[in-house]
């Protein structure tokens, strides 16, 4: 069994509650419920509105609406966007791949870079180079990623013309895509790395005082091999927890970076939806992002149980 029953139950409850929240919010917010459900781009005659009210089930009681809401979710009916003139689910699916193309390489690179450098920084003596690396990562840690995006965009694209200034759409070769994705991925992976770096560094600082390190030396291990053969695995446990917890935060960061680089992903979609108050799209995005965050947590739990044998036993 990969996951304890208790954990699985918590995931289900979380999913249930967050989805319910998504049902409640548009119906309790001030303003016209039709507008809240269809978006401000929807303008229609009184007759159509009455028809739509029936179609949307707004004439029914809340509990009926709630049941319908779940039915819609299981059949992937997330509503219709009058701003984009498309089904919400198909817009999101179209845009999601660019967000994922930015997010996953960044999380992976950030994890590798951050844990590796953080581990070395915690392990080595605190010399000038080490301190400088920590300062640099701390500075990235303290920056809103979109602001880094603005600076990079200005310097590399606007000033030096090394990278395209405008965003891109689905045409283009692999190299073209890579050129467009390079700066956003660079920024997001450094940002992710900075968070992993700080945690890994602190974690190694604790772990290296433990007795098993002395024992590893007694067995004849020397230098960095103590770090990589003994400390690294123990110290990376908090980082795995962090990567799961951070996923939502990084995802949000990626959304903003997308907007800066005018990438055609979910971030830009949310931005457009926000400007035109296209509520169905906003809600749809919220649902899909929730599913992504929960999936990431689920994955991290499994990874954790592979690294820490003590967890597998309890599950």
């Amino acid at each position: 069994m990969l996951l304890s029953k208790k954990k699985a139950l918590r995931y289900l409850i979380a999913l249930f509650i967050i989805f319910t929240l998504n049902f409640i919010i548009p119906r309790t917010m001030p303003g016209d419920p039709i507008t809240n459900l269809l978006g401000e781009n929807f303008i229609a005659s009184e007759a159509t509105i009455q028809e739509l009210k029936i179609e949307l089930g707004l004439d029914k009681s809340l509990s009926f609406q709630y049941l319908d809401y779940w039915k819609d979710i299981f059949t992937l009916h997330l509503g219709y966007s009058y701003h984009f003139n498309q089904k919400v689910i198909s817009i999101i699916f179209m845009r999601m791949k660019w967000t994922l193309a930015l997010l996953f390489p960044s999380i992976l690179l950030g994890a590798i870079l951050g844990t590796l450098l953080g581990a070395l920084s915690g392990w080595k003596k605190n010399n000038l180079g080490n301190k400088a690396t920590t300062w640099a990562f701390l500075a990235v840690y303290s920056s809103p990623p979109y602001f880094l995006g603005i600076i990079f965009l200005y310097v590399f694209s606007f000033k030096w013309g090394l990278f395209p200034f405008k965003g891109f759409y689905e045409t283009g070769t692999f190299l073209d895509v890579l050129q467009h994705l390079f700066l956003p991925i660079l920024i997001m992976s450094t940002f992710a790395a900075s968070r992993n770096y700080m945690i890994m560094r602190g974690s190694v600082l604790i772990e290296k005082e433990k007795l098993y390190v002395v024992y590893a030396r007694a067995k004849g291990l020397y230098g960095n091999s103590i770090l990589f053969r003994h400390i690294f695995k123990n110290a990376s446990l908090p980082v795995i927890t962090l990567i799961a917890l951070d996923f939502g935060f990084l995802l949000s960061g990626a959304l903003f970076v997308e907007i800066v680089f005018s990438m055609n992903g979910m971030g830009t979609l949310i931005y457009e939806a926000l400007l035109s108050r296209d509520y169905p799209v906003l809600q749809g995005c919220f649902l899909i992002i929730t599913i992504m965050v929960i999936a990431a947590n689920f994955f991290a739990d499994i990874l954790y149980s592979f690294i820490d044998p003590r967890v597998k036993e309890k599950a």
């Binding site: 007795l211 098993y212 007694a218 695995k233 123990n234 820490d308 044998p309």
Partner: peptide, 17 residues
């Protein structure tokens, strides 16, 4: 020269077999 440490619970690394 080998060493049998005291406190074996802490001397062994918890995440390795």
């Amino acid at each position: 020269i080998s060493l049998v440490m005291q406190n074996p619970a802490l001397a062994l690394n918890p995440v390795y077999s």
